Simulated scan of single mutants.
Amino acid sequence: MKPMLPEGLERTLITPFLVMFSPLTEADKSELGRLCRENHDYFMDQVNQHGGILFRGFTAPGSDEFDLFVNEQLQLAPWNSFNSKGTPTFVANWLRKWSEKILGAGDYRRYLGKSTVRLGPVENSIQGPHVEGGGLPQRSRYLALCCQQPGEYQAETGMADFSSVIDRLPAALQEKFLKGWNKYSYTTARPLGWLDKLILNLSPMAVEVKEDGHGILTGKLCPAACYVPETDSIAVQPWSFARNANGQVHKAAQAVFHDRGEIIRDSTADALNMNWDLVDENGDSLGWSEEEQYQFFHTIFSEAHLMAWQKGDVALIDNVRLGHWRMNGIQGNRQLIQVQANPFNVLEHLVHSGTESDEEPALA
């Protein structure tokens, strides 16, 4: 028998993939920690069944407490895909700033602790849809988010159920995502120095130094789609920060979100000299035309839910099944923090052969 809705809560289905829980009385507002700890199985069942849950109307934990809240109350294991070794905060922020300089762009998020991150600022653009850490074979399974202050105007978080995207794509593009791999390669914004090379030798990326001293950094191939463990549905796994796809992200955003005023191109993707291709397991391109890119992003944007954050909101999201992106708007004093949790190896949930595997493709 599945666990029942805990007492003191009102449950509201916002979309098929997002469920909201609110306190019934003023006295229940301070009970979020206890409710999460005592009803862990119920809430995780709701996440696995739908994709995400939102707690609204409670007294939320502060930024210093959020890591502890995720660990002890939600009973998850904080694990950041970009800081998987738990590097101390000042070192993690230094590396983040270094990577932004060497790659020529970044979304300027900053670590408040080993796991808690303050997300980047809003500009009047829309990001490409992605799963967090989607450029890496091992990414976080869950995202815990807390809104300490919403944006001044718009600045929502767009969300979509990536497990429903495959069935809505044209047959040829559907086949590419089912059998394909994401290949991401960067050209550095400046020539590589000795310290750059030393740090990059410790990274999972292959490094090729060009005659002009700039580097071409190629990541390991990542499946373009994978199985969602609890449902056996298939979810696409994009990480849409590439310059070669940014024009089609912008075009699709303008078409779908036509009532939001002017939308500029995402400056991060334009500045980041990254190429995203769909390839086979040997790294050979399957073709990734601008029309296919537009169809892909338009499909995702067309069924998006725009999360209009309220102060104190806490959300828990399946980072494999649900994709997200930052919407355009006015930043104001927007403060959104995130903790990634529970490592997930996408190579163990392949759809290419119809079986699970932990083997990497020929090109890695």
Rank of each mutant, 00 (worst) to 15 (best):
W239L: 09
T187S: 13
A172N: 13
A304T: 14
F162W: 12
S163N: 13
P223R: 00
A224S: 09
Y294E: 01
A269F: 06
D232P: 08
E281V: 02
E262R: 14
F301Q: 00
W181I: 07
F297N: 05
G219N: 09
D270P: 12
S240P: 08
M274I: 09
A235S: 14
P238L: 08
S302P: 06
S240A: 15
A269C: 12
G215N: 04
V249E: 11
A245W: 10
K220L: 14
D277V: 02
A206K: 11
W194V: 04
V209P: 06
D259P: 12
R168K: 07
L200N: 12
L286G: 05
S233W: 02
L192E: 05
S185G: 06
D212G: 01
I166M: 15
V279F: 04
K176C: 07
N273H: 10
S240E: 02
I216S: 03
S233A: 14
S185H: 03
L272W: 09
D259G: 13
K210A: 14
A255S: 15
A255C: 01
D277K: 01
F241L: 13
V279W: 05
E281Q: 09
A189I: 06
N275P: 01
L178Y: 10
S233I: 00
G213L: 03
R260M: 08
D277R: 01
A171P: 10
K251N: 07
W288M: 07
N182Y: 09
D196Y: 00
T268L: 11
R168Y: 06
N201L: 12
A225I: 02
A189T: 04
